[in-house]
Design a protein around this nucleic acid. Sequence first.
DNA 1: CCTGCTCTCCACCTTTCGGATGATCCGCCG
DNA 2: CGGCGGATCATCCGAAAGGTGGAGAGCAGG
Lengths: 206, 206
Amino acid sequence: MIRVVIADDHPVVRAGVRALLDAEADIEVAGEAATPDEAVALSERLAPELVLMDLQFGDRAAGAEATRRVRALAAPPYVLVLTNYDTDGDILGAVEAGASGYLLKDAPPHELLAGVRAAAAGQSALAPAIAGRLLARMREPRVTLSAREIEVLHLVARGASNADVAALLHITDATVKSHLAHVFSKLGVTSRTGAVSAARALGILR
Amino acid sequence: MIRVVIADDHPVVRAGVRALLDAEADIEVAGEAATPDEAVALSERLAPELVLMDLQFGDRAAGAEATRRVRALAAPPYVLVLTNYDTDGDILGAVEAGASGYLLKDAPPHELLAGVRAAAAGQSALAPAIAGRLLARMREPRVTLSAREIEVLHLVARGASNADVAALLHITDATVKSHLAHVFSKLGVTSRTGAVSAARALGILR
DNA sequence: CCTGCTCTCCACCTTTCGGATGATCCGCCG
DNA sequence: CGGCGGATCATCCGAAAGGTGGAGAGCAGG
């Protein structure tokens, strides 16, 4: 029997996952969490084999952090990320946080069930759509921005000037310009708005 | 007995809504549609009282168009929009397309059920969060950009420089700056990236 | 009619940004 | 260890963007 905790802020989604899992003889839904904190608490108390974790809670991406905390428990359950969309960066973030797999909510039920069983067995469970995307990434000369560069770009996308960014990050504007120059070079653009647009298209920003 | 068709591309969401509705004595799920076309076809064939319609299918917002087509049927069922997020513009688009209400997927189940019953009775069903947002819109002196201003802003959002925009629209860059200056003033920002960000938040751009 | 409003267009001046170059410090890896 | 990449900063300069002001066209309303 695979005991599962569902962590998602959407009641509708929780009900859906529960309905799908309850229909299986070898899977039992041990509990539901509507917030990241609840997810961690439930995981500790119920000690399930697996946590199905959404990445977006409310409008924030707190799922990765919750995944990290769940995996840091004394008896860490496997974590299977179940989310709406695949903004490239999120996938890596989730895997880095200790997720065993990454499924999309628009996946057919049999994929979801296969993913749950694979993850509970300690195997990796990547949705075909995700796996394909990761491969496509590997193949192409990948555009990788450093954490700091993305941080700067995020603020720029919100409309911050170089001086604003410098103040917020406690660095000089010269450094901000340096970071942006690198970003421009990597993305093949020449302006901040162009960089934001390109980053959005690549899934680096949302 | 309220007969309902569920239109959503996520199997998990369909299962969730079905589970919630099946538990009610006075509501029956007549069918499920995974695509906009399917939703229209099912609505015509099954003639339900109500269609629960998602706005996003795949990565496109085809729900509004589907709503329009459903409402154009010979015996048009009411349409209740059930979506993830509330990008201001979408709400108006959906209502304009003939939706009777607008619910969020993170709404508690009782709100969903109340919405279904209200919509099936021909009443308006707006989630409190949505209603509040609409009211806030009414109250505030609404930000309206002229067609030309939006045109300029669109190009800017794609990363175009003032000179690029000027060339594309066959005007001088001085004029582009003037349009942007008006946009800045209306949106209360001081930079082009800020304007793009603000416009996106207001649903003017996507 | 003509006042007032919006939209569109433009010129001039100031500030900011982007591009180039170079430098220091640090951690990682072969 | 020596090299490499990331993060930090500096300076200089030309090119863009932003701020201010104004002019003409079209239209609603008194």
